[in-house]
Write a protein that binds this DNA or RNA. Structure first.
Length: 724
DNA sequence: CGACGTCCCCTTTTT
DNA sequence: GGGGACGTCG
């Protein structure tokens, strides 16, 4: 076994202080790149190694499966312990586990299924249809946002306040939706948390059991917790347990989905936190980059206060490039990437970040043309693919026949002649008998009052699968389902079904792997939950990787949100323009601008050595050319840290769409006295850049971007512009 | 039932 | 511009 001293070796004073805190609640303010994960895992290792607790006596909570895995991997490299059975995982994973263990007290069937976001939305649409609610007036997505918002605040429908007709309707929908979920025996993501919270609150003996067990609770990314998660922690922490909360208020970028930075303050107050350890030494970036990040974030109010520093040198200046348009911006990035590669930086060490996904298209296009391999993060994941969800829906129905959401997904897929009419009859029958659709369907078939041959076929199929599925392995069941259901045959007939078939085969592989891994595992310690249900849980809670092939060298493309927690040798932040970053929409939200600024802070601190900020004078957005001015965040960086790569942006021979700008506009002429991209001076607005000409020859206007004075359209005849 | 047209909207995202 | 959702027609 590794000795204590070697476990703690190499920690700086602050890190050491945090790792070895006594059994009290503490808040660790861990700046970007300050060794947060290391502190968290070393703390766990130290607690176990010194015998203060056992692996089973602590709980470690994260937000993502990735973070949980990372933590456990690092832990096993420090201590020769078996992490299986440890209560380390995501909020949702841990709540699910508690609910499985106490499903009766929680009022759930032992095979309850988890609705992912797509399932939840379709369940909500169903409720609204039943209640005849106008989905123009109540867009299902908004209803979903409302319901999840309430749950994340810890509020059931009967506890929500509603004064006007609109919110009363929403509340009514919330109640009806919950009722439907109970009938179906399903729980959405937020429900896992709320249900678990209520369970602990209602059942003192269960609460006491876990409070006694988890003397040490460790929470990662504490700034991202929502109200309900905080309440849950508070309940588990009780009066005597130690909650070790690690977070960075400056990296709170998920307020839009309910995260409450205020939890950090509440935590200090509610737990009488005496120990606040600030980890401010950054081991990632050179000081030019850190100083820029510090300068940006200093513009936010209401910070807990923290200033990153490094003993690394100044490093390179932050490079700023003002592009003529989005194509030019992309081309610039391509050129720089090529140059960096020549200097020996590998592609996988470079990241190209953007504020919103829409920006990736043109970047991808340009990278593709330039033959630069790239990998985009985000998009559909394995268990979210349509064919996989179809196959899983059959399996869900086998596990729990009352799962109407699953039934509706596949009752007529592959098509078997059950149309909208037949379905309506079925739903009507279910409503009248107050039973699930499956029960209604089997009743109909049994009674001989056939809705259609298709329905008969469907019921027979499901019964057959349930029969055949009894006692076979998970892999065999998956195999059985994809063939018997007709999914395989359906996609084989489809010209573009090849990928889907591959994915279905992959599902069988995943099922086999899951049961193998589970054999020696007992990670649920919950004998009531069968393997099929566990597998379906796994599929819902862990939708799979965004990206499978990690080894391949490629430029990393992702949103700034997706980049949180990662680091790269070189980072490009593109589209650093007002309206885009900070995003227009942010202005309408309370604290929106500050969140955008934190987002910028996160983006900047991803870079170890080299950082580029690029913005464009114009870009295509929503099918229209949009003229932008540089983001205020650029101005917030002290000039001495930066290097402007082009002081006077010049029109490139390629304009939007890669087409050449018409000669009449690109070259000065009698009609067009200034080139696009040329700098001009105006008596009132100062210096600006010619963006475009508008109107016809006799009535010509000129559009000029005056930077801080904004974008102006002037009548050429009257505007006294001069070259500069 | 499926193919095709049209309309509408359009940050960020994990579980 | 482009994807998703919905509606109409064959």
């Amino acid at each position: 076994m590794i000795s204590e001293s070697s476990l703690l070796q190499g920690l700086n004073d602050k890190q050491l202080q945090a790792v070895t805190l006594p059994h009290v609640s503490a808040l660790i303010l861990a700046g970007a790149g300050s060794g947060k994960t290391r502190v968290l895992t070393t703390r766990i290792a130290w607690l176990i190694q010194t015998g203060q607790t056992s692996p089973m006596g602590l709980m470690a909570v994260t937000f993502t499966n990735k973070a949980a895995k990372e933590m456990l991997t690092r832990l096993t490299s420090m201590l020769p312990i078996n992490t299986r059975g440890m209560w380390a995982g995501t909020f949702h994973g841990l709540c699910n586990r508690m609910l499985r263990a106490h499903y009766r007290e929680a009022g759930l069937p032992n095979t309850f299924q988890i609705l992912d976001t797509a399932d939840q939305l379709s369940a909500i649409k169903r409720v609204m249809k039943t209640l005849n609610v106008d989905d123009e007036k109540y867009p299902p997505k908004q209803v979903m946002g409302y319901i999840n918002g309430c749950k994340e605040e810890g509020l059931r429908a009967d506890a929500v306040e509603a004064y006007d007709g609109h919110s009363q309707k929403l509340r009514e929908l919330y109640a009806a939706y919950d009722q439907q979920c109970n009938r179906d025996g399903v729980a959405d993501f937020a429900e896992l948390l709320l249900r678990c919270y209520e369970l602990l609150e209602r059942e003192p003996h269960i609460r006491a059991h876990y409070q006694q067990r988890f003397q040490y609770i460790l929470v990662d990314e504490f700034q991202d917790t929502n109200r309900l998660q905080y309440l849950w922690l508070k309940l588990l922490g009780g009066a005597h347990n130690s909650i070790f909360a690690v977070g960075d208020d400056d990296q709170s970028i998920y307020a839009f989905r309910g995260a409450r930075v205020g939890n950090m303050n509440d935590f200090q107050r509610d737990f009488n936190v005496q120990n606040i350890v600030k980890l401010e030494e950054n081991y990632r970036s050179h000081s030019n980059i850190l100083d820029a990040a510090n300068a940006i974030i200093a513009n936010n109010r209401n910070r807990l206060g923290k200033n990153l520093w490094t003993s690394a040198g100044k490093g390179e200046p932050i490079r700023i490039y003002e592009a003529y348009n989005d194509t030019d911006e992309a081309q610039f990035i391509v050129d720089e990437v090529n140059m960096l590669q020549k200097e020996g930086v590998s592609l996988g060490e470079m990241a190209l970040l953007y504020r919103s996904n829409a920006q990736s298209r043109i970047l991808e296009h340009t990278l593709f043309s330039a033959n630069i391999p790239y990998r985009v993060y985000g998009g559909l994941r394995f268990f979210e693919r349509a064919e996989i969800k179809h196959a899983l829906a059959y399996m869900r129905l086998i596990a729990n026949a009352n799962d109407d959401t699953a039934l509706l997904r596949i009752i007529n897929f592959p098509p078997r002649g059950i149309g909208a009419r037949g379905l309506e009859q079925l739903q009507e029958a279910a409503r009248q008998n107050e039973c699930s659709l499956w029960q209604a369907a089997s009743n109909k078939v049994g009674a001989g009052t056939l809705g259609s041959r298709g329905l008969e076929g469907f019921v027979a199929l499901m019964r057959h699968m349930i029969d055949q599925g009894y006692g076979i392995s998970l892999g065999e069941l998956a195999e059985l389902v994809i063939h018997q259901s007709g999914l395989m045959a359906h996609y084989q007939n489809d010209k573009e079904g090849e990928d889907r078939i591959e994915n279905l085969k992959e599902l069988v592989t995943a099922a086999v792997a899951f049961s193998k891994q589970d054999l020696g595992n007992h990670h649920n310690m919950d004998e009531d939950t069968d393997l099929l249900t566990q597998f379906l849980n796994h599929a819902s809670l862990e939708a799979g990787d965004h990206q499978a092939d990690v080894g391949h060298e490629a430029l990393q493309l992702m949103t700034v949100h997706a980049a949180k927690g990662l680091e790269f040798q070189s980072v490009f932040i593109s589209g650093v323009e007002e309206g885009l970053f900070p995003h227009d929409q942010a202005a309408y939200e309370q604290g929106g601008l500050e969140e955008e600024r934190r987002l910028m802070y996160v983006a900047v601190t991803r870079a170890r050595q080299r950082l580029y900020l690029t913005y464009a004078q114009s870009r295509m957005l929503h099918g229209q050319v949009r003229y932008g001015i540089p983001s205020r965040f650029v101005d917030e960086i002290p000039a001495e840290l930066t290097k402007r790569l082009n002081s006077k942006p010049v029109a490139k021979p390629y304009a939007a769409g890669g087409q050449y700008t018409p000669a009449a506009v690109s070259a000065p002429s009698a009609n067009y006295p200034f080139k696009i991209g040329q700098s001009v001076r105006h008596g009132k607005f100062g210096e600006g850049v010619v963006v475009s000409y508008e109107g016809n020859a006799s009535d010509l206007s000129i559009k000029v971007n005056f930077g801080s004075a904004g974008l102006k359209t002037l009548m050429l005849e009257y505007a006294k512009l001069e070259k500069c």
